[in-house]
Structures are given as structure tokens and as C-alpha cells.
């Protein structure tokens, strides 16, 4: 219901320069696209980066063919509970997790896998419960936060090669609900999370302990912060956050993405760089003539690149180190963009539309 008019502005020409359309995946059977991701797929001795698409009731695996085309390898049909999220496992082959739930919050995690020994595709339950957040970690592990009444459980589960839950380790939970996780890059035992009251929590995750090392406040002026990425450098912990309430015209006060440097020893922090919504989109109108603010809907971060779907139906891409928007995909004449995800390797953006069509862009 949005009449989209992109006003000529600062971003003219950037989309052609920075994003090149490589190919298109069209799932004719898909009812409504929910999520898209990438995963490593190994069969007959060859390892390829494949695309995973999810609708509410099924998950499909696509492998690259010649001439930038994609072929559907397999479709898992799921039960009555809708799919709400694909949870990919970094550095893991032939395994992908799916979050299912009736509301926006997942209730169960199922594991979809392929066994080369039996040449069969399967699925099994990893965890059930009122799960608030989940992230796939390196070394075939999953971390999740869940609530039972007033009790919060934060747990890391290791998976076997056959996809079964092997070991579980409980991390010390903070009082407030953890809504997102990020691995600290290069530190296998360090994990961070963002909470419902805008805190950053740091854990030590090893075979012996799940200690909560530090809780640091992000600041109330940046509500609903979601951590996407964390790394340690020169004694500081750098965290990339998105702010889902970000909107246009609040460029300094409410950016879409921020890089914050924390000193974990003192819990003090300072903003390093912020990335605001792209300019030149003022005066937006719905078909009924009412005005609306351009807002951030959902996004993804890979290395120093961020991408987000905006309420205008466009996808914006930022260089987080420069703090500026570097590309803009306007809404397609056939429909608005609904999903923006980075591939796990290479500078590749997956842009999804609600009808299940996924466009692969080289960035």
C-alpha cells in the first residue's frame, strides 16, 4: 500500500556501481518467503555454497548450476507450526537449523540435515521451549535463550555429525531477557548478547564454565539494540549494533547501525561510527495520502558491510567503517524487498521478495 517514488538524490548511480545482479532464484511453489540464508553443501567430494530459502511450511536447498543459474536440490516439508527463521551454522557442512513458532518468537528448533552415507535428508528436534533468541556458532554449536516463567535459560548445545544434540552447557543468565547473540571473532570462548533493557552481556564459554563476565549498558538513547558482530582489538571489545527503531531525520540521534567500543574492564564505552538511513527520501506518502517515516525494518551484517530492508520497500547497504550508505536497491516494480542477507562467504547479497523470489547480487 505504499506509493514508492525515489527522489533523485545523493545515491543516484550507486546501486549500479556497487551491486551487480548475478542471478535469480524463483520458487514457484513457495507461498510466502520467510527467510533466506547460505550453507555449505558437500556431496560426491565437492563442496559448494548453497542457498537455503524458507517459506512458512517448507525449506528448500538450492545449488549453483552453470551460467549463474540455481537448481533446487531438496525441499523439506514441515509441520503445522510455521517456520520463522533459518539458523545457519558457520563452518558446518550439510546441516542447517530452522526456528519454528506461532508468534514472532520461536518455540522449537528443528534440524535439517543430509547424510551422505545413506544419501538421505532428515530432520530432528534440537530444542523445544519458549526460545527468545538463537545463533549458530562455530564448531557445530547452537546458543539459545529461553524463558520458563521467571526463569531464563541460556544454553549452548553441541551437535554431532548426524545432527543429534551431543552436549549441553548452561551459561549464567542475566536478569533481563537476552534477545540476540554474537560470537566474538577470533575468540572461541567469548560470546556476547544484547538484552531487552539495552545491555551487552559477555560470557566465557568453555567446557568448564559458562561465566557471565561483564554486563555493560549501551545507553537508553539507542533503544532495542541488536548485536550483529563483535571483535576484540587493542584491549577493546567492538560491537556492531542495529537499532530497529531507527528512522530518517534522526541521523545523529538514532542511526540504523552503530559500532561501539567497550572497555570490558571498566564497562565504559564510546561510539566509533554510526550509519544513518539514506537521505533524499523525505516526504513519503502512502496511497491514501498519509505521510510516514522511513524506518529500518530488518537487517544483516557481514564484516564491515550492513544491509537492511526499509519501510519504503528498498534495501540499503552501508560501509560500517566509513559510516555511509554505499548502495540502494529500490523496490522492484513487481514488489517490495522483504529480506536482505549476506552470504557466509564472498561479497554476495541475497535480496528476497515476499513471493519467494531471491536475487543474488555481487557487492
Amino acid at each position: 500500500d505504499v506509493a514508492e517514488q525515489l527522489t533523485p538524490g545523493l545515491l543516484d548511480g550507486l546501486e549500479e556501481e556497487s551491486l551487480q545482479l548475478v542471478s535469480k532464484l524463483k520458487d514457484s511453489s513457495s507461498s510466502c518467503a520467510v527467510d533466506v540464508s547460505t550453507m555449505w553443501w558437500e556431496a560426491a567430494g565437492s563442496r559448494e555454497l548453497c542457498v537455503v530459502t524458507a517459506s512458512e511450511s517448507s525449506v528448500s536447498l538450492w545449488k549453483p548450476l552453470a551460467s549463474d543459474r540455481w537448481g533446487r536440490v531438496y525441499t523439506w516439508q514441515l509441520g503445522e507450526v510455521p517456520v520463522i527463521q533459518i539458523v545457519s551454522l558457520p563452518d558446518t557442512c550439510n546441516l542447517v537449523c530452522i526456528a519454528l513458532g506461532d508468534l514472532e518468537i520461536g518455540e522449537m528448533r528443528w534440524l535439517l540435515l543430509y547424510s551422505s552415507e545413506s544419501d538421505s535428508f532428515g530432520q530432528s528436534l534440537v530444542k523445544a521451549g519458549n526460545i527468545k533468541a538463537v545463533l549458530g556458532l562455530k564448531d557445530r554449536r547452537l546458543v539459545s535463550s529461553s524463558r520458563t516463567g521467571q526463569e531464563q535459560q541460556v544454553e549452548v548445545v553441541s551437535l554431532s555429525e548426524t545432527g543429534r544434540s551431543k552436549d549441553g552447557q548452561t551459561l549464567m543468565p542475566p536478569e533481563e531477557t537476552v534477545l540476540a547473540f554474537a560470537e566474538v571473532e577470533g575468540m572461541r570462548e567469548a560470546l556476547v548478547g544484547t538484552t531487552a533493557v539495552n545491555s551487552i552481556v559477555v560470557w566465557s564459554v568453555n567446557v568448564k564454565t559458562g561465566q557471565l563476565l561483564k554486563k555493560m549498558h549501551v545507553g537508553y538513547s539507542y533503544p532495542a539494540s541488536v548485536c550483529h558482530r563483535a571483535y576484540s582489538d587493542s584491549g577493546l571489545l567492538f560491537v556492531v549494533l542495529s537499532h530497529p527503531h531507527a528512522k530518517e531525520s534522526e541521523s545523529c540521534g538514532n542511526p540504523a547501525f552503530r559500532v561501539i567500543a567497550f572497555n570490558p574492564k571498566t564497562a565504559r564505552s564510546t561510539g566509533v561510527m554510526f550509519s544513518s538511513l539514506p537521505p533524499g527520501h523525505a516526504g513519503r506518502q502512502r496511497c491514501d495520502g498519509s505521510a510516514y517515516d522511513l524506518r529500518y525494518l530488518e537487517g544483516d551484517v557481514k564484516d564491515a558491510s550492513a544491509a537492511a530492508v526499509l519501510t519504503s520497500g528498498a534495501i540499503a547497504v552501508w560501509d560500517l567503517l566509513l559510516g555511509r550508505c554505499t548502495a540502494l536497491l529500490p523496490p522492484d516494480p513487481e514488489g517490495s524487498w522483504a529480506l536482505a542477507r549476506w552470504a557466509t562467504t564472498s561479497a554476495c547479497l541475497l535480496a528476497g521478495q515476499r513471493d519467494g523470489t531471491v536475487y543474488v547480487y555481487r557487492y
Binding site: S204, G235, L236, L237, A261, R268, T270
Partner: peptide, 23 residues
């Protein structure tokens, strides 16, 4: 970032916090 803004910085913050935290 200066040390005066953020307080004393340690390159071994993770190990030091792990040793200080309750088990």
C-alpha cells in the same frame, strides 16, 4: 578512543575477567 575516556585498558581483558568472575 583515549584511555582517559574508557579507563585503564588491558589486552588480556578476557583472561582477567574470567579469573575474577565467580565460577
Amino acid at each position: 578512543c583515549s584511555e582517559s575516556d574508557l579507563g585503564p585498558i588491558s589486552l588480556n581483558w578476557f583472561e582477567e575477567l574470567s579469573a575474577e568472575a565467580p565460577p
